[in-house]
Computed example of a mutant assay.
Amino acid sequence: MLTVGSICTGYGGLDQAVCAVLNAQVAWTSDISTGACKLAAHRWPDIPNLGDITAVSWHTVPTVDIICGGTPCQDVSLAGRRAGMTEGTRSNLWESMREAIHVIKPSIVVWENVPGARSARAASAGDLESEPGPVGDADGKPVLRALGRVLGDLAGLGFDAEWRSIRASDVGACHRRERVFVLAWHPDRIADARGWPPLSASHEHRLARGYLDAQILDLMPTVRDPSSTGPGAHGDGGADLQTAILHTPRASRGASTTENCSMITSQWGRYADTVARQEKAFGIPAPDPIEPGRNGTPRLSARFTEWMQGLPAGWICDVPGITRTESIELAGNGVVPQQAKAALADMLPSITEKATA
Rank of each mutant, 00 (worst) to 15 (best):
P249D: 00
P249F: 14
S262M: 12
G269Y: 01
A233W: 02
L246V: 05
I264K: 04
N260V: 00
E259D: 03
S266M: 15
L246F: 02
Y271V: 12
Q242H: 09
G232W: 08
P249E: 08
S256M: 03
A272C: 07
T248Y: 04
S256T: 03
H247S: 05
I245F: 02
S256R: 00
A255N: 05
L241T: 14
A244F: 09
T229P: 04
D273V: 10
G237W: 00
H234W: 09
D236S: 05
Q242A: 09
S266N: 04
Y271T: 00
G235S: 02
T243P: 06
G237V: 00
A239V: 07
D236A: 13
P226L: 06
T257W: 06
A251P: 09
S266Y: 04
P249R: 03
S252I: 11
A251S: 11
T258Y: 01
Y271P: 14
L246E: 10
R270L: 09
D273A: 15
P249K: 03
G235R: 01
T265D: 08
G235V: 02
T258E: 01
S262T: 15
D225G: 15
A233K: 05
Q267P: 00
S227T: 14
T265Q: 02
A239H: 11
D240T: 03
S262F: 12
T229D: 12
G269Q: 12
A233N: 09
T257K: 13
S252M: 11
H234M: 12
A244S: 01
G235H: 10
N260R: 10
L241H: 05
I264R: 15
P231E: 06
S227K: 14
G269T: 07
R253W: 08
T258A: 13
W268V: 01
L246H: 13
P231F: 03
A272Q: 10
A239R: 08
G230Y: 01
R250S: 10
T257A: 06
S266V: 07
H247N: 13
G238A: 13
T258M: 10
A272S: 08
C261I: 15
S227Q: 05
W268A: 11
I264A: 00
D225K: 10
A239W: 07
P249V: 15
P249M: 12
S228P: 05
T243Y: 13
G237T: 06
S266G: 02
H234R: 13
D273W: 07
T243R: 05
I264Q: 02
G232Q: 14
Q242F: 03
Q267S: 15
R270D: 12
A244E: 08
Q267N: 15
I245Q: 11
T229G: 13
